[in-house]
Amino acid sequence: MKRTFHLLSVTMAAMITSIAPSAAAEELRQGGKLLLTNGIASVEGSTGGGLASWSLIAGNETRDGIGGSVHATVAEFKDYRLDTEGLAVGFFNRVELSYARQALNTKAIGQALGLGYGYKLNQDIYGAKLRVAGDAVYGDPLMPQIAVGIQHKRNLDSQVTDAVGAAESEGTDFYVSATKLFLSHSILIGATARYTKANQGGLLGFGGDKNNDYGVQFEGSLGYQLSRKLVIGGEYRTKPDNLSIAREDDWYDFFAAYAINRNLTLAAAYVDLGSIATSAEQRGGLISLRASF
């Protein structure tokens, strides 16, 4: 596990040094992105929609600057609450580095499991994303913005991930993501393929007794731009099913993202996570606020 993390930091360092010299020669320019083209923070802290990852890069910067963002997200479900806070830095609209801390509040379930009412499962997620081609808004109308990314996840409650039958408490997801705003129809489409073995995104560990292999999962997003400041849409995310004691369902949501101003984006969503650790029908609301500069 230490090795994966080392690999991640080396990749991040290589990404930054590979682009820094060209840009360092010129003056940095602050801001300049169009509203909403830096997306919102996904549950994993990388830029996306709410549940799905997008190829957009955090921050208000263009290819001539460095930007960043901080965010907080609260999602309340029947038997759980998920709090996420995180930050991200965008380098030249090319590389994004992100960190997020997730806390899953188990409410009464924690009590039933003997962990105590409101026991919190915590996870750290370190992300890096590289935009490899295309532009989500400009250029060839059929060429999406494409990015590759990596998310290293460290669940801080290995006694729980062990108890549910997960093989590991740390894991790394790899993904490739394509996003395009089809201006002629005001429609945004996103598609992501994720190579993962995370259970409930990692909150229940990685791999399990039923299956311990990596597999490809899909994330799709469809949005409609109502104005420069407002996008509504839906997302769908398929999931592995690795644990024999707890069936895992696909996730989906319906969202609205609103740019309050250049620096603040508010997102609200109706989210259905399906069954989580044997508790079915985890539906609820999500609110997320992200400040970008």
Binding site: D135, V137, Y138, G139, P141, F182, L183, S184, H185, S186
Partner: peptide, 12 residues
């Protein structure tokens, strides 16, 4: 947006 879609490809 339909009009901007005509201008967007001129970026480069």
């Amino acid at each position: 947006n339909r009009f901007l879609a005509k201008l967007a490809p001129m970026k480069d």
